[in-house]
Design a protein around this nucleic acid. Sequence first.
DNA 1: CGTTTTGGTGAGTAATCACTCACTAAATAG
DNA 2: CTATTTAGTGAGTGATTACTCACCAAAACG
Lengths: 215, 215
Amino acid sequence: MTKEMTIQDAFQNVMATRGDVPPKQQRVLAASLALFAEQGFSNTTTKQIAARAEVAEGTVYRRYKTKDELLAAVLAPFVSEVLPNLIEDFATNIVKRDYITRHDLIAAVIQDRLRFAQENRHVLQVLLTELLVRSDVREQLVPQVAPLLSKNLYPVLDRLKVSGELIDWPDDRIAQFMIGTMLSQLARGILANEEIESAGPMMIAFLEKGLAPES
Amino acid sequence: MTKEMTIQDAFQNVMATRGDVPPKQQRVLAASLALFAEQGFSNTTTKQIAARAEVAEGTVYRRYKTKDELLAAVLAPFVSEVLPNLIEDFATNIVKRDYITRHDLIAAVIQDRLRFAQENRHVLQVLLTELLVRSDVREQLVPQVAPLLSKNLYPVLDRLKVSGELIDWPDDRIAQFMIGTMLSQLARGILANEEIESAGPMMIAFLEKGLAPES
DNA sequence: CGTTTTGGTGAGTAATCACTCACTAAATAG
DNA sequence: CTATTTAGTGAGTGATTACTCACCAAAACG
């Protein structure tokens, strides 16, 4: 029942809210995402975007007044729609069970999120790059994502700690190790042009043992 | 006995080889590294570099003919001197012991490398960012780093697998999880402006359990 | 129907960029 | 000493950039 929402879905969500977006504007957004992922934001010119979207350069500036607004328009729906939906969906699915094992939790996190990372790897790559380079992006996104984890993931972790299923480390540290393990797979996908999916079972086993409580 | 070589040492090594480099050129390299880390390579202008190094803009181009060469000059000594030294040093220290436990290995990797990451976090940040964005950097560095791991780390891993100290997974997967765990800490340092050092013991415990052989 | 609004165009512009070059200063060589 | 090389300078340059604007076409409105 997990939603497999891609960035395209999110675009359409946002668009549905604001009336339908003309097709050429959608092409501009798609071209921007593709080029930002391939070359990075600041190595991409508005001329290139116009060329790939097959529109005039003026069209690029019709809706978004600056290149920065264009970046925001690409990333914002992902952060404010896609990501929250995914996390909340995960939380409600896990929380409603009476009893959760460590394996349940980790398998759920890894399997769904790995698919998600595979589908949205372009946005993730752009987001990651800009996080490293631009402090303004950092300062906007960190306070938006952090509470999502606090509200949805951390309560589940606490439940598992109480029932002796999970090691008693700070929630943010456990989250760090889970995210880091997935990140390593994403990095591998980018560096070696490798498929992400197949490593699932090993990642689950690794996390399951690494996060087991002290015997 | 681990060498704590910083990028400055590496600069001086390379400089010693090629005769002494004039002080203004060193200032150019230092200013470049600082600005690349703060703003990213392509958001940094040669004018800014000249200003921070307090030299004329022409001086920036005296030794390095293009901005790209300047990036290479900043990254190259790190990859071709600092990194190999570190890895080989680690390997010889570990290999000469008769018997290694999983704990020995992981503690050695984490403790030394964490210090290293802390000291060289600026170069690492630049390197990481450009790896995400520029395929030419990727294609130059991957084949230079991969054999280092194959020659120095993988034999040690194999020994541990044989003696039942380590889970029987492919070497590259084990390396991935170790690197990923450290990367997660680096990411945390960048995102939250947090000190890196303190998390050592938890990272060691996490990896030690996660990489234990199946009971 | 005329009028207004909306989406789209592409030549044009001011600013900025990486990079050059003619030149000076000083060190080194012979 | 002169001659040559090396380090450094900063005004200048052509190319490129993000962005603008006068204009057009068609749809929506009344």
